[in-house]
Design a protein around this nucleic acid. Structure first.
Lengths: 161, 161
DNA sequence: GCGGCAACTGATACATTGTATCATTTGTTG
DNA sequence: CAACAAATGATACAATGTATCAGTTGCCGC
């Protein structure tokens, strides 16, 4: 029974929202109306949204929202580590593990659009070592793996692998 | 003595170009005037270019070049595996190791813009295993590591690490 | 509370990146 | 060399992201 949470979004969402807000403040970001609104939308949607999809959803509640405003809010939320940008799809999504600072990996299902966030030690170690080996001091690691998730693959073919 | 190659670009470039052209044909891509022109520019430039930077460079030689045309040419060249797209900078660059099919990693220096292409077994293995572990059958892996290369770091600070 | 400064916003305009469509041209193949 | 598929040219447009600057808001010390 997926989507069951949708039936009482305010309950769990409220709690999650407060946790995210606390993190923003801890990390030196003011938490303004706009930023809160962007957080809410991402939380409510539960999937990655483009900046302009966000804008569409904000406009009804706040007719004064603008692209620049949305991007500024996203910038701040990314600074705080509670939102990630998907470079390969130009979309934004809530961080799943915002408590711990991270340089994670993102797995993107091209079937259902689901995004799973991972923090794989082997991948982190391997990319770190690769940087060292080539003499780079890394400050950003984009690891985005696209494919079909288990659920999306199942109906189409039985040939595992 | 960097940039020494620039003094006789046609020599080595000609040879590289022929090799790239051969690869395109082998891989079922027609090699048309436009595509050849794009290859030439990327080869001449030796660094990543945006689609519109490419367009600027093509226009003088062929006033009929259009954005759509450039993107179509790039599409074909990427199909042939001789060009890569940098997702995190929205730019395109010649593949350094076009002979071998690959799902490589790209290291991008934010100082000089240099892009180094790697094919690190540990990174490939680790990302592959991560996909498996989470039930994904991957068909695209974006690994883009940004930082400062050795040369760009050196002048600024002596604190190794 | 409140004055003042920095941060944020609203508004507008614009820059960059990427696509859709369709008539025409080109290239390949039998 | 006819015919068909692929690529191109032209135009228009869609999507994504930024610059600027005047005005407002929030925070901090008093």
């Amino acid at each position: 029974m997926p989507k069951a949470l949708k039936t009482h979004p305010t309950r769990a969402a409220q709690q999650a929202l407060e946790r995210l807000e606390a993190l923003c403040l801890e990390r030196g970001q003011r938490l303004t109306r706009q930023r809160r609104a962007v957080l809410c939308q991402l939380l409510a949607e539960g999937r990655a949204l483009s900046a302009y999809e966000l804008l569409e959803r904000l406009r009804p509640e706040d007719g004064r929202s603008t692209p620049a405003g949305v991007y500024r809010a996203l910038e701040s939320l990314m600074q705080a580590g509670v939102v990630h940008r998907l470079e390969s799809t130009r979309a934004f999504i809530l961080c799943e593990h915002p408590e711990a600072p991270h340089t994670g990996q993102l797995l993107i299902c091209r079937g259902c659009g689901q995004v799973v966030e991972a923090e794989d030690a082997r991948v982190s170690a391997a990319t770190g070592r690769l940087g060292e080996r080539l003499g780079f001091s890394l400050d950003q690691r984009v690891v985005e793996l696209t494919g079909l998730c288990g659920r999306c693959r199942a109906p189409h073919a039985a040939h595992a692998q």
